[in-house]
Design a binder for these strands. Structure first.
Length: 561
RNA sequence: UGGGGUGUCGCCAAGCGGUAAGGCACAAGGUUUUGAUCCUUGCAUGCGGAGGUUCGAAUCCUCCCACCCCAACCA
């Protein structure tokens, strides 16, 4: 696994592990475990996929098995190479490795075609010319049985010839389909002679223009699993009804392998949307700035936001694997994130909304070279240097003329500790003509550097940076993209619930000098503010950009809500 | 309305006939030069409901209720 593994998992056993354990005891599959992660390359991966990735790769590795990566690329209409590449990068980033087992359903198009011929020969499939409309009529409804297609009893020879001609391109798109001959009266709609192949003249990102017929998911997936010798085929709940078809196809064919499909509940998280369609819409309608917008629940977005792969993996362990539909609180994700970040992020100081502070009792040109640890609990992270001088900045939020009860920061005439530095006292407040506080005049207690003040207690601690040596940076503050906890499960359009304050760009922020050389994707805790990460796309040496990954827990803000 | 699933604390989730784990959230304390972290404590006489079986039921049986999925030539 890549990056830190500070978040060790204590995953309890889930029902899938129990099934596998039992299979192993019965020596099913010769004691072998093999899974696969089968994305369709028609969009970017999101946190929901992470659950499946962790489940498939994680389960395989727990049982010393293997997990394949297989692109489910049977619908060229929606798929693209761009997605293939991004999916691979996201999986790698998450920390998983499929080694040389990178497969495509399209690798099996020839075999799939031959199996189609086999089904026809066994009288288990037929070519049908019903239009989509007609097919719908014949299919019946949830409560009424369907009717057989008039072409259901076509001779094997004729079916063979028509199927060959479908492949050869003799017919228009949609003119014919190859259908399984199962049972039009089945209460399970999936078993009412489902379409196996359709004619579609489309360029495929893997097979080019070789094919004008493309196999359907239900037909392709089970056979691909079998060809790859998958033992446990894990998929989401909505495929439960498809399992009889999965089994039916493999039962008809002369294939030794018959993987077991097991369904689990997909991941849902509140205050966000997870469907590919909606995520794509957010991107296409410029409601966000692309698939990797840090507010998106895509893995690319989360990466850019500063999420660690370990925190995502840990989160997936935390939520578990069951068959019950559930909605996980984002708070759990954020907890996992903070938990990892707290241990792994070096500390630094950055003033988001600078307020100039002039120290009245030190000379012009005064300098204290201070050395601060990068982490309060991890000495191995080392130290950083920062110098204290006559003019510094603190945050506007850390000064109040009229403090609310319980305020522990700076007030006129009051004292506060500058983090890692002296205790200062506010002697004078300077305002502009509009009455806005623009500068503070403070004095230091020279005896308080690394020592408690004499005879009194100073409760507040405030972060600061030297005025001259600090670095100007841009900071992007992110908040949840939606302000409704179930944006897509409510009346009305989910877009109506987009949080207008989900992005706030702050310029002119002042970061301590040690941040000058921060590299893209480097993460820090800005003390008393939160965890930030150098934007991997827009940050440059001349114009550094930091993204807020997640704020520190803030019981003070909570108290004042 | 037919079929397939699921219901245990505000949110996840263990539990598999022997008397309700854990995490998140929340609350109250303690430590702290981050109102952070960390630590301690509290938080379901109750397991969708009603009956039944049993010495004993969240676990077994019966009926009922609620919610999710399925009528693409999508996956």
């Amino acid at each position: 696994m890549s990056e830190s593994d500070s978040t060790s998992s204590t995953s309890p056993s889930n029902f899938i592990q129990q099934i596998i354990r039992e299979d192993l005891e019965n020596n099913k599959n010769e004691g072998r475990v093999q899974t696969r992660f089968p994305p369709e390359p028609n969009g970017y991966l999101h946190i929901g996929h992470a659950k499946s990735i962790c489940l498939n790769f994680g389960t395989a590795s727990e049982f010393s098995g293997l997990c394949n990566l297989r692109f489910d690329d049977t619908n060229p209409e929606k798929e693209d190479l761009e997605y293939v590449d991004s999916i691979k990068e996201s999986i790698r980033w998450l920390g998983f490795d499929w080694e040389d087992r990178e497969y495509y359903a399209s690798n099996y198009f020839d075999q799939l075609y031959d199996f189609g011929v086999e089904l026809i020969n066994k009288g288990k499939a037929y070519v049908c010319s019903l239009t989509q409309d007609e097919a719908r009529q014949f299919r019946g409804t949830l409560t009424e049985p369907g009717k057989n297609s008039p072409e259901r009893e076509r001779s094997i020879a004729e079916n063979l010839e028509l199927f060959a001609r479908m492949k050869a391109g003799d017919f228009e798109d949609g003119a014919y389909t190859l259908r399984a001959k199962i049972n039009m009266q089945s209460p399970n709609m999936n078993m009412r002679d489902p379409v196996l192949y359709r004619i579609r003249r489309l360029h495929h990102h893997q097979t080019g223009d070789k094919w004008c017929i493309y196999p359907m998911y239900d037909y392709t997936h089970c056979i691909s699993d079998a060809l790859e010798n998958i033992t446990h085929s894990l998929c989401t709940l909505e495929f439960e009804d498809h399992r009889p078809l999965y089994d039916w196809v493999l039962d008809q064919l002369d294939i030794a392998s018959h993987p077991q499909q097991i369904e689990f509940a997909r991941l849902n998280i509140n205050y966000t949307v997870m469907s590919k369609r909606k995520l794509k819409q957010l991107v296409d309608e410029n409601l966000v700035n692309g698939w990797d917008d840090p507010r998106m629940p895509t893995l690319d977005g989360m990466r850019r936001r500063g999420y660690t792969p370990g925190s995502i993996r840990n989160f997936c362990d935390m939520v578990g694997v069951t068959k019950s539909n559930s909605v996980v609180d984002v708070g759990m994700l954020e907890h996992s994130l903070r938990d990892d970040l707290d241990k792994t992020s070096p500390r630094a100081m950055c003033v988001l909304r600078p307020l100039k502070v002039v120290i009245v009792n030190v000379e012009e040109g005064h300098k204290d070279e201070l050395i601060l640890s990068r982490h309060p609990k991890d000495e191995e992270m080392g130290e950083r240097k920062i110098s204290f001088s006559k003019t510094i900045y603190i945050d506007h939020a850390d000064f109040e003329e009229v403090p609310p009860p319980g305020f522990k920061r700076l007030i006129p005439g009051g004292e506060v500790r500058l983090r890692g530095c002296y205790v200062i006292k506010c002697e004078e407040v300077i305002k502009d003509s509009a009455g806005k506080v623009v500068e503070l005049r403070c004095s230091i207690d020279a005896a308080t550097l690394g020592a408690k003040p004499e005879g009194r207690k100073v409760k507040g601690v405030v972060h600061w940076v030297p005025a001259e040596e600090s670095v100007e940076v841009e900071i992007r503050l992110y908040d949840r993209l939606f302000n409704h906890e179930a944006p897509d499960a409510t009346d009305g359009d989910y877009r109506d619930f987009i949080n207008p304050d989900s992005l706030e760009v702050l310029t002119g922020c002042r970061a301590e000098p040690s941040l000058r050389d921060a590299l893209p994707e480097e993460r820090f805790q800005f003390e008393r503010e939160g965890y930030f990460c150098v934007d991997r796309i827009n940050s440059t040496k001349e114009h550094p950009v930091f993204n807020l990954t997640v704020g520190l827990r803030d019981t003070w803000a909570k108290q004042n809500r």
